[in-house]
Simulated scan of single mutants.
Amino acid sequence: MIAAGRDLYDDPRFFEGYRRLRDSGAGINDAIEIPAMSRMLPPVAGATVVDLGCGTGALARRLADAGAAQVLAVDSSRRMLASAAPHPRVRYLRAGLEELTLPACHADLVVSSLVLHYVADYPGLVGRVAHWLRPGGRFVFSIEHPICTAADPMAGWLTAGEGTVWPVDDYASEGPRTQNWIIESVEKHHRRMSTLIGGLIDAGLELTGIDEPVPGPAALRSQPHLAEHLRRPSLLVLGARRPRQRA
């Protein structure tokens, strides 16, 4: 089994397959995830931003181009960071999210794109994010939808008669899951919707948004295969805010 971070994204087979997928534009990132994250994000002009699991830094650079004063882009993968393009207001840092420490009230915005399903200690990370945020600061992240991560192994669509179905099994049993995605036996972590939202509330954050995005008409016209994501949600996007005054 290959876990996430430096083990997964530094695996040369996975890295090359992932690079080809992103370059092709055939995945859900461009058509579904990026538009959904953009809708959830607050204005960033002058903001201090932290990007958790930045990969090659695409989101960090978009936020800097949108006016963020500085972006700390964090990833544990040496290969991903080596492929990241420089930007005058983006600083790249190689670190695992489990061990990342930052000063209290450091950031106006913390973001994470399709990374937290790799993190074993979700409550611990969310608690640290709440500590890093300034009063009024925002936390916005996307994650694989719990419907997609429930079954173990994450087998994907199954044939049923003349059609296909998506298996949702063992939903209440949270913990590691395996998936053959690009390479064999990738480890992810399944959590219920209530756990994901409850973790934000337990950390003292206020929920500001929730989205289960689907491809829009233009994406469906150009990539008809994306229609399968209308049959079950592939992603969950959550937004939260640190209150300006603690209760």
Rank of each mutant, 00 (worst) to 15 (best):
V90Q: 15
A36N: 06
Q70I: 12
V115M: 09
D170E: 13
I143V: 10
T159K: 08
E184W: 00
R94F: 07
A107Y: 03
A218C: 09
S142F: 05
R89T: 11
M193H: 12
G198Y: 00
T159V: 10
Y9E: 07
G216E: 10
V129E: 01
A151K: 12
W181L: 06
S173Y: 12
L100H: 03
F141D: 00
G136R: 08
A130C: 04
E228Q: 09
P43D: 06
I201T: 14
L220Y: 08
Y122N: 07
V71F: 05
P243M: 06
S24M: 02
P224Q: 09
V126E: 02
A31K: 01
W157C: 01
N180L: 03
Y18H: 08
S38W: 15
Y118M: 07
V50I: 15
A73Y: 07
L114D: 05
V115H: 10
Q223P: 01
R19C: 01
Y92S: 03
E184D: 11
E206W: 05
R246D: 03
M40R: 06
T178W: 02
G25P: 00
F139Q: 05
R128V: 08
E16G: 08
G96W: 08
A3F: 07
L102R: 15
L116R: 02
R62A: 15
D170Q: 14
R244Y: 09
I210L: 15
Y122I: 02
D11I: 00
G27Q: 03
A84F: 14
I201Y: 13
H189W: 05
G27Y: 03
A60P: 14
A69L: 07
D7I: 12
A4I: 03
W132I: 08
Y122M: 01
L116A: 11
D23N: 00
R61P: 11
A64N: 10
G161T: 07
G57D: 13
D202Q: 13
A95Q: 13
S113H: 11
I147R: 06
P217K: 15
V165E: 04
S83L: 15
S185H: 10
E184Y: 01
D10M: 05
L125P: 05
E144L: 06
L100R: 09
P213V: 00
V74D: 06
G124D: 07
V140Q: 06
S142L: 11
G53H: 04
L93S: 03
M80L: 07
I143S: 00
L196Y: 04
L235Y: 15
D211M: 09
A95W: 14
A218F: 10
G27M: 02
P12W: 06
G209E: 08
R19H: 09
M154R: 00
L158T: 15
H87P: 14
T164P: 14
D30H: 12
A172M: 10
A151M: 11
A85K: 15
T164H: 13
V237S: 02
E99G: 13
I32W: 07
T164C: 15
V186E: 01
Y118K: 03
T208F: 05
S76I: 04
R241F: 03
L81I: 09
I210A: 11
L133S: 01
S173H: 13
C105L: 10
M193P: 14
R241W: 08
F14R: 01
A47I: 00
L125Y: 05
E99S: 15
E187N: 09
V119A: 00
T48I: 11
L220H: 14
L226M: 11
G239I: 02
S234L: 14
H229W: 09
L207V: 11
A107L: 11
S113M: 13
G55Q: 05
A120S: 10
L158A: 09
L59A: 12
